[in-house]
Amino acid sequence: MIAWLLRRLVQAAFVVLAMTVIVFIGVNVIGNPVDILISPEADQAERLRIIANLGLDQPLWRQYLHFLVGLLHGDLGRSFVFNEPALRLIGQRMPATMELAVTAVLLSIVIGIPLGLYAGLYPDGAAGRSIMAGSILGFSLPSFWVGLMLIMVFAVQLGWLPSTGRGATRELFGVQWSFLTIDGLRHMAMPALNLALGNIALVLRLTRAGVRENLPMDYVKFARAKGLSPARVVFVHVMKNILIPIVTVIGLEFGSVIAFAVVTESVFAWPGMGKLIIDSINVLDRPVIVAYLMVIVLLFIAINLIVDLLYTVLDPRVRLESQE
């Protein structure tokens, strides 16, 4: 177990290193940050001063080495644009994205699993069919378009919800959160739903597929023959089996929810880190791009680890040793 964890962590470190190399080279391919940052009226001396200041006069490998040295000291560099530590910038934005993503995932579980169970148990009923048709709609529309539709209907036409922004926040553990205030929740409703829409459909469909697949299986028949109540059969026995793919997917999706927040955050002007990364790519703010991607990668690795661990809990047939 410990050896397995250690191995995964070493691999994770390699992944992170590989990623930073790719990003360093990639950002260099796109363009020169100085072209974008610098005032076009600046003269040559000013230009050279800024290039030297940002360390961009060094060869790329030396810049990378410098970055690695900083990394060992826990320093991911300062934003070219904001002149603040990149990690602090991301840290300031992270809670907003996190609470949005967590809410979206919760929404997709709370809405997706019951609907999926129902559609799986009664696949031929009108309701079951409607749920499936609705689920197709759920992931058919581009999220930026859905976002605008939501704003049009609920903010502009009906005036029920605020159109954009984060609203009032309250502090908890030294961080500002929206979900602690009514105003914050109202601001969060549309972006969270927008972000959850695709995942609701995904969870719903996986649940339904799982139920449909498991119901004809022998263990279900045995359980029924043993005289267990239908509810117990579905919620304990079937559930346990269908949870494996669902947990996998929800786990994996959590990361992409955070990434897809990029689009939702731009539509709803939600001040999270997704908006920060888009802006940073646009101005080639390399320290922020690298730091953001590192944070995301580490997050993903953590999620994958947890998913793998949950595997073993949910399905004893799969043991961690099988990975070696």
């Binding site: 691999q11 390699f14 992944v15 590989a18 990623m19 990003v23 990639g26 391919v29 796109i30 994996l252 990361g255 992409s256 955070i258 990434a259 897809f260 990029v262 689009v263 990364i277 790519i281 991607l293 995301i296 990668v297 993903f300 690795i301 994958n304 990975q323």
Partner: peptide
């Protein structure tokens, strides 16, 4: 699987964005 992990470590939209930017 390490390749898969590497790939999944990068959010789809961002990888696509980066690739197309290059």
């Amino acid at each position: 699987m390490r390749l898969v992990d590497l790939q999944l470590s990068f959010p789809a939209i961002l990888v696509a964005l980066m690739i197309l930017a290059f």
